[in-house]
Computed example of a mutant assay.
Amino acid sequence: MTNLSGGTIGPGAAIPPDDTSRKLTLADPDDPKARHISVAGGTYTILLSGEETGGRYSLIDMLVPPGGGPPPHRHDFEEMFTILAGEIELTFRGEAHRASAGSTVNIPANAPHAFKNKSDKPARLLCMCTPPGQEEFFMAVGDPVDSRTAAPPKLSPAEQAERIQRAKSLAARYRTELLV
């Protein structure tokens, strides 16, 4: 078996040398320079991009208001959520599950899923995608906002329809299929 650095992995395999071209990343979700994007009714903050992790994963801080969450979709990469605050209802292969603060949920690659915040309080999730790319999709289809806690922009019905069409037209490029 081969690791992401091209070295052999397994019992007794040597650990590759340190790649000193890679730098430490310290991500603060409230950093004014962080990339904050309004997507699917929520505000998503890109904590770590694939570029910053050597193509290994991305990490996104999601603030999902009551009623927020993405439509049914699937993609060819793993997606893991850790719920930091609040609760979501996750639909996985047509079956509903509740996940609340402290829970971690892993969505296998290619499985249809969606989630919604059905409570009356915001939910906060950390989302890891491996390999990365989902953060780039969010940047391509979402609307920039000023901070992690900024409310999503109020979009007219025409603007909402344009965002949905944009997401549908770009989804395949980012290894995603919208099931709506």
Results as ranks from 00 to 15, higher is better:
Leu4Ile: 14
Ser5Val: 06
Gly6Pro: 02
Pro11Met: 11
Gly12Lys: 01
Ile15Glu: 07
Ile15Leu: 14
Asp18Ala: 14
Asp18His: 09
Asp18Thr: 06
Asp19Met: 00
Asp19Glu: 08
Thr20Trp: 10
Lys23Asn: 08
Leu24Ser: 01
Thr25Tyr: 07
Leu26His: 05
Ala27Val: 09
Ala27His: 10
Pro29Cys: 09
Asp30Phe: 13
Asp31Met: 04
Asp31Ala: 15
His36Tyr: 00
Ile37Gln: 06
Ile37Phe: 11
Ser38Leu: 07
Val39Gln: 03
Val39Glu: 04
Tyr44Ile: 07
Tyr44His: 14
Thr45Tyr: 01
Leu47Lys: 14
Leu47Ala: 04
Leu48Phe: 11
Ser49Ala: 13
Gly50Ala: 09
Gly50Arg: 01
Gly50Thr: 10
Gly50Tyr: 02
Glu52Arg: 13
Thr53Glu: 05
Gly55Thr: 10
Ser58Glu: 04
Leu63Thr: 06
Pro66Phe: 05
Pro66Trp: 05
Gly68Arg: 01
Gly69Glu: 02
His73Gly: 13
His73Thr: 07
His75Tyr: 06
Asp76Pro: 05
Phe77Met: 15
Phe77Pro: 07
Met80Trp: 00
Phe81Tyr: 02
Phe81Val: 03
Thr82Arg: 10
Ile83Met: 06
Ala85Cys: 10
Gly86Glu: 02
Ile88Leu: 15
Glu89Ser: 14
Leu90Pro: 08
Phe92Pro: 01
Phe92Ala: 01
Arg93Ser: 15
Arg93Thr: 07
Arg93Gly: 14
His97Phe: 08
Ser103Gln: 05
Ser103Phe: 12
Thr104Pro: 07
Val105Gln: 00
Val105Leu: 09
Asn106Cys: 06
Asn106Asp: 08
Ile107Leu: 15
Ile107Glu: 03
Pro108His: 01
Ala109Ile: 10
Ala111Lys: 04
Ala111Arg: 13
Pro112Thr: 04
His113Met: 15
Lys116Asn: 01
Lys116Gly: 03
Lys116Leu: 08
Asn117Asp: 09
Lys118Asn: 12
Lys121Glu: 10
Ala123Ile: 02
Leu125Thr: 04
Leu125Gln: 00
Cys127Ala: 08
Met128Val: 15
Cys129Asn: 03
Pro131Met: 02
Pro131Asp: 03
Pro132His: 06
Glu136Ile: 03
Phe137Thr: 02
Met139Gln: 14
Gly142Asp: 06
Gly142Lys: 03
Asp143Gly: 05
Ser147Tyr: 08
Ser147Glu: 00
Arg148Phe: 13
Ala151Arg: 14
Ala151Ile: 05
Ala151Cys: 02
Ser156Gly: 03
Ala161Phe: 02
Ile164Leu: 07
Ile164Ser: 10
Gln165Thr: 09
Gln165Glu: 15
Ala167Gln: 07
Lys168Gln: 14
Ser169Cys: 06
Arg173Asp: 11
Tyr174Gln: 02
Thr176Trp: 07
Glu177Asp: 10
Glu177Cys: 10
Leu179Lys: 12
Val180Arg: 11
